[in-house]
Every structure is written in C-alpha cells, then in structure tokens.
C-alpha cells in the first residue's frame, strides 16, 4: 500500500519537476540569447509548460499511414518507462536499494530501444536516419557511463547510492578525488540524454525533428516529458554521486546548478557530427573513465 502511494506521488511529482525544468530551460536559454522566453502565461510564464502539455494532450492521436503500429506505439512508452524506473535508485527516494548502480545501468540501457522503435516504426527516412544516429549514440556511451559510475562505487565500496552520498559527506566529494570520472560521467550522461551538443538525432536544422518527427499529441508529450525527466535524472545523479548529496535542499541546489550548466552549453556549443561523436565516446571517454577506475583501484590499495 505504502509503495503504491509513493509510486503515485513520484509518478506525479517527477513530471511536474520535468515541466518546471522545461520552463527553466526556455527562460535561461532565452536570456542567454538576448530574448525573454515565456513570461505571459502565469507569473513569470510558469504555467507555460502546463499549457503546452495540456495542448499536447488534447490533440488528435494521429498514427500516420504506413507505420509499423507496434513499434510506433511502443516507442514513447519505451522512452518513458526506463527513465522513471531509474529514479528508484536515488537515495532521496529509496535509500535502501543495494543494487543501485547495477539497477541504474540496466534500466537506462532499455531506453535505447525507444529510438530504434521510433526510427524504424515511423514511415520516414528522416526518422530512420535519426533513429540510427540516436541508437548508435546511446549504445556507444553506455560503456563510459557505466565505467564512470563504477569509480565512485569502488571508492565507496558499495553499489548503493546512499552509501556513496554518505561517504562523500564524511570525506570529500568525488568530483575532487575523481575528476576524470566526473568529467567522463558528465559528458557521457549528456550524450545519453541527447543534450546539445550531442543532439544530432533531433538536429532541427538537418533532420527537422529526427526520430520523433512523425509524433504528435500524447505520444509526443511522452517523449518530451521523458527527455526532461532524463535531464533531471542525470543532474540528480551527478549531484549525488559526484557532488556529494546532502540534505534535500542542498541536493536541489546542486541539481539546479548542473541544469544551468547544461543549458548554458546548449546556448554556446555547435552540434557535434555523428562520426566525431563516436570518436569521442570510444576513443576519448572510455580511456578517460578506465583511467579513472585504475586510479581509484590504485588509491584503494
């Protein structure tokens, strides 16, 4: 019973925070670009995200002719579920999940399927190309992401994120003791979340909207919410695993700081090309995170 209540609360609150992040991104990005961002709908435009979501939910559920109905309909769900499931590993929500890191990597890899399904299921060459790029990207960056997560796990001696947070509060935050791992995690997580500069799968100026070009209404809303939830997740993970966690308000502050940096990068950096992305993942991040792991291992001796 209790878990059902918690699940419902989490299921409602996380999308709410995602909507808030959507508003925050639009305002911050606008300010960095000499514009205002939404400021009419509600105080400071705060209801804008809600209005947009309501609009999306009230649209006709179009399923284009020629699509593979199974893949097409499954894709948004496959994007949504793994991200939300991943939140269970966070110490603020379940401090006793002893398989924390293992659970995280397992669940997050599932979200790669959504791009494949969306790309192949949509009856569009643009979507196909976008789907290929996205899937390759996800798969390539799994490895450095996992390696980067293993560093803190080894240092704390546990897969449980709560233990890692606790360890950092009694010693030093891992970002200081494992800088390579921190950078590796940050970059890999951004690539996993398709954040600019790693957003080539949805490259607006090239493939219009890439793998989710044929989606509208509720299905599209699911993609959007899961994208921002994923952003929240990775900032939260960064805050807990590398920045040290702490009381809820401190974690929230750290999360907002990370989010702001990520938005700043979006405003500043051009898009990286597909093959350069691969090269970065395989030839730079894997050595970097592996080195980090060796460093921790040596240090632990």
């Amino acid at each position: 019973m209790k878990t059902l209540v918690i699940a419902t609360v989490v299921g409602m609150v996380i999308p709410g925070i995602a909507a808030f992040l959507l508003w925050y991104e639009r305002r911050l990005l606008a300010r960095l670009q000499v514009r205002m961002g939404p400021n009419r709908v509600g105080p400071q435009g705060l209801w804008q995200s809600l209005a947009d979501i309501i609009k999306l939910l009230s649209k006709e559920d179009t399923v284009p002719a020629g699509v593979n109905p199974w893949l097409f309909k499954l894709a948004p769900v496959m994007a949504f579920l793994p991200v939300f499931m991943a939140f269970a590993a966070l110490p603020e929500l379940d401090p006793k999940l002893n398989i924390g890191i293992l659970y995280l990597t397992a669940v997050l890899s599932l979200s790669a399927l959504s791009f494949l399904a969306a790309g192949m299921g949509s009856h569009s060459k643009y979507a196909l190309l976008g789907g290929f790029r996205a899937t390759a990207q996800m798969v390539s960056y799994e490895v450095p992401l996992t390696l980067a997560l293993l560093g803190p796990a080894m240092a704390a001696g546990s897969l449980n994120l709560n233990v890692m947070a606790w360890w950092q509060q009694h010693h030093l935050p891992y970002i200081l003791t494992q800088p390579l791992g921190a950078i590796g995690f940050f970059v890999a997580a951004m690539a996993e979340a398709h954040r600019p500069p790693f957003d080539l799968a949805e490259a607006e100026s090239e493939l219009v909207a890439g793998y989710h070009v044929e989606y509208s209404g509720v299905r599209f809303a699911l993609f959007v919410v899961s994208e921002y939830a994923h952003l929240l997740l990775l900032c939260w993970l960064m805050a807990v695993i590398y920045l040290g966690g702490g009381p809820a308000w401190l974690v929230a502050l750290k999360i907002m700081a990370m989010v702001s940096v990520i938005i700043w990068l979006r405003a500043t950096m051009p898009r990286i090309r597909a093959d350069q992305l691969m090269a970065l993942g395989w030839k730079v991040l894997i050595p970097l995170t592996s080195l980090n792991l060796l460093w921790i291992a040596a240090w632990n001796l």
């Binding site: 670009q33 600019p196 500069p197 500043t268 950096m269 051009p270 898009r271």
Partner: peptide, 16 residues
C-alpha cells in the same frame, strides 16, 4: 550558417 552547424545563440546576436 552557425545555426546550421547547431549553434543556436549567435543567430540572435548577429540579427540584433
């Protein structure tokens, strides 16, 4: 040109 390459912000600066 920068927009095509993925840099969203300079477009607004140059238009200003």
């Amino acid at each position: 040109f920068l927009l095509d390459v993925g840099a969203l912000s300079p477009f607004l600066y140059t238009f200003r």
